[in-house]
């Protein structure tokens, strides 16, 4: 049942991301209040399996979670049909996952271009 599947996915990614968000907030507080430069940041993330996993999982989870949320908003606030909402969900989820994983790759393998 699709509605049930989406509901479970939304709650699971939410539960997964709760600690990831707290971790990310800690990282941002540290990086910004210590005025880290790109060199400082990339020095820590470059080649790091830990950061790759942390943010890789985060990127995929947020792509799923945001896509399902946008689907609900499009139905309830933009009057979209179920099919149109599903389309929006697939497109937004793919774009977010792609850009997110690209960003993770960028900081783990900087200067790869």
């Amino acid at each position: 049942m699709k509605a049930a599947r989406l509901y479970v996915a939304q709650r699971l990614t939410a539960a997964l991301m709760a600690p990831l968000v707290i971790g990310h907030l800690a990282v941002m507080f540290y990086a910004t209040s210590n005025g880290l430069s790109a060199a400082d940041i990339l020095g820590r993330t470059s080649g790091s399996v830990g950061w790759a996993l942390f943010y890789g999982v985060f990127a995929v989870a947020v792509a799923v979670h945001a896509a399902i949320g946008l689907r609900a908003i499009s139905i309830e606030w933009a009057g979209a049909s179920e099919q149109a909402a599903d389309g929006l969900m697939l497109i937004s989820g793919s774009v977010l996952a792609l850009l997110g994983l690209r960003a993770v790759a960028a900081v783990v393998f900087p200067g790869a271009l």
């Binding site: 790109a38 997110g100 960003a103 960028a106 900081v107 393998f109 900087p110 200067g111 790869a112 271009l113």
Partner: peptide, 10 residues
């Protein structure tokens, strides 16, 4: 994501 992705260029 695009901002962070700038690191791909170095």
């Amino acid at each position: 994501f695009l901002a962070l992705g700038l690191a791909i260029e170095g």
